[in-house]
Design a protein around this nucleic acid. Structure first.
Length: 801
RNA sequence: GCGCUUGUGGCGGAACUGGCAGACGCGCCGGAUUUAGGAUCCGGUCCGUAAGGGUGCAGGUUCGAUUCCUGUCAAGCGCACCA
């Protein structure tokens, strides 16, 4: 009887739905498990096989946990604000609300067809006003706490999407949404002061179970460095130019200084600068360059020497020139540096080009050839001379600087504050009001949600203004403080806002008094296991930790870190080994796979295809292999016999497999768990029959991977309760080892024979047994045995000459 | 340039704290069944006729190395003039 997956899969999906067996329970006496997957952006293209891999991993864990008696929260939702929807809406003239609703409906039906055990009663949609009400609420809390500020600065701006982008969204000088070149633009921008949490975000990493590479990526992204701030006197003005350096030990080697072209001191002393026209021209040139061009010009240093003002090296007292150059960024440190050409590659290149002195202060390299950045003995440095340890000389210099009042120790971060606004329609309105009288005023909490007005025209303005600015009824309002006429902020929040706290809403999704109740939060938090993509490590994962830590500081959430454990799945590549993309035409649609082979096959395949954390190409014929496996499991019904127990010849195999599958699911080794089940299946077929007891154990183990076929077999074996909620299998450690084992025998490290011995035999017995083997005896004849090694249960090695 | 990761059959990948390299699956070869194809089932499949040789390459430690150490090459990902 052929396995009719279409009928059977939808049958069980309906039964699970009716039974409500995947709803998290309110029973707080049970141990809990909160498994979280990154909720999808409901795009028009529908689901991607990458989603399937991402969700199938924790799906297996969640199904296993339920069987182990945990109260499981395994939720799903939709991160639905964002540009792709809005762009599609503009193109087709459909309202983004409708586009979003259609896409969510489509995603929901696709997810249900795969048979995931999500708790569908807790779905969260970030564009739902009952959700974004709380996004705005948390934002206002941040505003109250002084974490929201407005600044006119150079920002990353995408001329094509007409939006300001955060640093995280413009990596590599490309817009993350449309991939066109990002330009620098001067604009009023709302920022969230994430840098205030830099240290907390760093320290928190010690408390969590994340893979090392994810921790490292976050550490590098935050980019904390220790160094010193040093004040250089500007000759004849009494003004100090403050710089940041990580190498105060090289201060005696400073032969010039460099300011960023945007440095404010230039304007301040414009009257003293004789070549101010040149300076202005250089500034204009830099402003025109895109981020991309700036990185392309790494090889060739450019700059202008400032004629008219100079600085004094505070330790040597020598007068040194000041330059401006775009290799110094206004956004890092103080926007000015002390240049030590002998020991910094960039300074060296600059000095060579402009003919500036290069003074060696650390021995060990050839500074005529290149900058020496290694360690060595300090020379030409007064009181530091002779020191050989970098740490010592830095310490000594810092003491000196502090004593003389020239400088002090300090830290810097690469991470920048989070540019938090978009000039677009499809996002959460920022609940702030501009009042001429009172300044920036928060929308009162009881007026939340501040709803997106319903409009017909949501195209962005050509001048980079939000579409909301055109809607008079939205913009004009009364100031909540003084009552006079005021204007609403018309920018919306960036896409990352809603996803920064969604995992908290799942805990208590229908609460209309709070974002979630303290009691529920205390029970369910932290998220026990969070799986998602590597691409979110420096964005969503940092942003959401930041929001969470802020709420923790307000006492609104119970533990200092949101995610106890994080894992990341590897990409699924196209069959050609390239990254899947529409333009390459190598995209596999999960829907087609479900239609052709069934959901169980799709789920099994994405977990079997390779190491879960590594990228692997899609292979249609391997999918067929999984199809064969599922069919062979189904066909066990044809050789099933009465009997509750496990037959003696398969007892060890079953116990081994239960142990292996149980362990492998916990360590993301889904591929070897499935392989172990395939091996056991082959052994059952070798035996020729299967008892009901054996088959029940087998389908229990396979159930988290292939829930439909196993549920159907379970029912046909006469079970009346759902397999989904039936208990997991136990194993007996003692029964996982064979009574007799095959021990390989080596002579001088080369395998020569294997012998059968009782598993508990001692070394002497096993070695004696090995020597009795005819082949071993023959090879040892006439030789002297030097050493005999027996590793219990593993190997015998005889060293002979 | 810096950081991280990975190099194992024709392919995806296994191999516990150093202990039989290639589990499991795909593909391929042979056979059975079939009018034929497909599907299914059975057997074989690292290379070499063999001795032997094999985990990117060259060394080292060890009775024994895919695993540890040193050097080197290659690929992927991330960051990138971060002072």
């Amino acid at each position: 009887m052929k396995y009719d997956f279409k009928t059977i899969e939808s049958k069980w999906q309906n039964k699970w739905d009716e039974a409500g067996c995947f709803r998290a329970s309110d029973d707080h006496t049970k141990p809990k498990f909160y498994g979280l997957v990154e909720f999808p952006y409901p795009s028009g293209a529908g689901m991607h096989v990458g989603h399937i891999k991402a969700y199938s991993g924790l799906e297996v864990v969640s199904r296993k946990r339920r069987k182990q008696g945990y109260n499981v929260l395994f939720p799903i939702g939709f991160d639905a604000f964002g540009l792709p929807t809005e762009n599609y809406a503009i193109k087709t003239g459909t309202h983004p609300r409708k586009v979003t609703d259609d896409n969510i409906r489509n995603f929901t039906s696709q997810l249900k067809k795969v048979g995931y055990s999500f708790d569908w009663s807790r779905v969260v949609d970030t564009t739902d006003e009952n959700y974004y009400k709380w996004t705005q609420w948390i934002f206002l809390k941040m505003f109250e706490a002084g974490l929201v500020f407005r600044d006119k600065t150079l920002v990353n701006y995408c001329p094509s999407c007409k939006v300001v982008l955060s640093n995280e969204d413009s990596q590599g000088g490309k817009c993350d949404i449309c991939h066109s070149d990002v330009v620098q633009k001067s604009k009023d921008v709302w920022y969230l002061r994430i840098t205030e949490y830099a240290d907390k975000l760093l320290e928190g990493l010690n408390e969590v179970d994340y893979p090392e590479n994810i921790k490292l990526q976050q550490i590098n992204w935050i980019g904390k460095s220790k160094g010193a701030f040093v004040n250089f006197e500007i000759k004849g003005t009494g003004e100090k130019l403050k710089i940041y350096t990580t190498r105060p030990d090289t201060l005696f080697g400073v032969t010039f200084m460099v300011m960023a072209p945007e440095h404010p001191m230039l304007e301040k002393y414009s009257s003293l600068i004789k070549n101010y026209a040149d300076v202005e021209a250089y500034k204009a040139e830099c402003a025109k360059k895109t981020e991309f061009e700036r990185t392309q010009l790494v090889k060739e240093k450019t700059g202008v020497k400032i004629d008219g003002i100079s600085a004094v090296n505070p330790v040597t007292g020598k007068e040194i020139p000041i330059y401006i150059s775009d290799y110094v960024m206004m956004g890092y440190g103080t926007g000015a540096i002390m240049a030590v050409p002998a020991h910094d590659t960039r300074d060296w290149e600059f000095a060579k080009k402009f003919g500036i002195d290069i003074i060696e202060v650390i021995k060990g390299g050839n500074i005529d050839e290149e900058a020496y950045t290694g360690d060595g003995e300090v020379v030409n440095s007064g009181f530091l001379n002779g020191l050989t340890n970098k740490k010592d000389s830095i310490e000594k210099m810092l003491e000196y600087l502090e004593e003389k009042g020239i400088g002090e120790a300090g830290v810097q971060y690469k991470m920048k504050d989070w540019a938090f606004n978009r000039q677009r329609y499809w996002g959460e309105p920022i609940p702030l009001i501009h009042c001429e009288n009172c300044g920036i005023v928060a929308v009162p909490y009881d007026e939340l949600p501040l709803r997106l007005p319903k409009v017909d025209n949501f195209e962005p303005g050509s001048d980079g203004e939000s579409p909301l600015a055109k809607i008079d009824s939205f913009v004009r309002c009364a100031c909540p403080k003084c009552g006079r006429e005021a204007r609403r902020e018309t920018d919306t929040m960036p896409q990352w806002a809603g996803s920064s706290w969604y995992f908290l809403r799942y805990i208590d999704p229908h609460n209309d008094k709070e974002f979630a109740s303290a009691e529920e939060l205390k029970y369910w938090l932290p998220v026990d296991w969070y799986n998602g993509g590597m691409e979110h490590v420096t964005r969503h994962l940092i942003y959401s930790r930041f929001w969470y830590k802020f709420l923790y500081d307000l006492g609104l959430v119970p533990y200092s870190e949101p995610y106890a454990k994080r894992s990341a799945q590897g990409l699924i590549l196209g069959p050609d080994g390239d990254k899947m993309s529409k333009s390459k035409g190598n995209v596999v649609n999960p829907n087609d796979v479900v239609d052709e082979y069934g959901a169980d096959v799709l789920r099994t395949y994405v977990l079997f295809m390779g190491d879960y954390e590594k990228a692997a190409p899609w292979s249609e014929s391997s999918v067929k292999g999984c199809k064969r496996f599922i069919d062979r499991v189904w066909n066990l019904l044809e050789i099933v016999k009465d009997g509750d127990g496990i037959s003696p010849e398969l007892e060890t195999s079953f116990h081994k497999t239960i142990k292996k599958v149980s362990d492998d699911i916990e360590t993301l080794k889904y591929n070897t768990a499935i392989a172990a089940l395939m091996t056991l299946l082959n052994q059952i077929y070798d035996k020729g029959s299967v008892t009901k007891g054996e088959l029940k154990t087998f389908v229990t183990l396979l159930n988290p991977f292939a829930p439909h076929v196993t549920e159907e077999i379970w029912e046909r074996l006469g079970e009346t309760e759902l397999l989904a909620t039936a208990p997991w299998c136990d194993y007996d450690e003692a029964k996982t080892v064979e009574a007799t084992i095959e021990v390989p025998v080596q002579i001088c490290g080369k395998l020569r024979a294997t012998v059968s011995v009782p598993a508990d035999a001692d070394a002497a017995t096993v070695i004696a047994c090995a020597k009795e083997d005819p082949k071993i005896a023959e090879l040892l004849a006439g030789k002297t045995v030097i050493k005999e090694i027996y590793v219990p249960g593993k190997i015998v090695n005889i060293v002979a000459k």
